[in-house]
Simulated assay, not measured.
Amino acid sequence: MSGWIKRARSRDERGAAAVEFALISIILLTLLIGIIQASIFFWSYQTGANAAREGARQYAVDPCDKTGLANDQKVKDFVGGAASGTVTVGHTFSGSNPPVTGDEVTVTVSYDAPSIGGLLPDFPAVVKTASARVEDVQDCTP
């Protein structure tokens, strides 16, 4: 009779492992999606920092771009796919207009980081700033 009890118990517990796996897999999947989304945000954040730094360098070596559109476009191109939507680039010079050697240029880049399907709440916008010293103003004309 002990064999019959053993067989009856094994039949009752057949689906228990599947149910336990289903409950745990929801938690594991949520954790995995969160890790992936955080990784995408930090990648985008680092790309914004690099874009601001490259933009400041570009303005430092070529401050004579009157409209700033060419230099700003280079910064936007550097951001590339790390942005979701519009990339805003701003620049200011600390001294006179046109800038002179030794002035400081500050470039600010802002945009929204991409999201993986809106499963998690949005992260804050990426806003990065970098500064550089203006080096070459030989060809600038007022």
Rank of each mutant, 00 (worst) to 15 (best):
D103V: 11
D103Y: 08
D103P: 00
D103L: 15
E104A: 12
E104Q: 10
E104C: 12
E104G: 13
E104K: 15
V105E: 06
V105N: 11
V105L: 10
T106W: 02
T106G: 05
T106N: 05
T106H: 14
T108F: 01
T108S: 08
T108L: 06
T108M: 04
V109Y: 00
V109C: 01
S110C: 14
S110H: 01
S110A: 13
D112R: 14
D112H: 03
D112L: 15
D112T: 15
D112S: 12
D112N: 15
A113G: 08
A113L: 01
P114N: 04
P114A: 09
S115V: 08
S115A: 15
S115Y: 02
S115I: 06
S115W: 02
I116F: 09
I116V: 08
I116S: 14
I116Y: 05
G117S: 06
G117H: 02
G117R: 09
G117A: 07
G118V: 03
G118H: 05
G118Y: 13
L119K: 13
L119W: 11
L119Q: 06
L120T: 13
P121M: 06
P121H: 12
P121I: 07
P121F: 05
P121V: 08
D122A: 10
D122P: 11
D122E: 15
D122Q: 04
F123D: 04
F123C: 00
P124W: 11
P124M: 09
P124L: 14
P124Y: 07
A125W: 00
A125G: 03
V126R: 00
V126Q: 01
V126S: 01
V127L: 13
V127P: 02
K128S: 14
K128I: 02
K128W: 03
T129A: 10
T129H: 06
A130W: 06
A130Q: 05
A130S: 14
S131F: 09
S131K: 15
S131W: 10
A132D: 11
A132W: 08
A132G: 14
A132C: 13
A132Q: 01
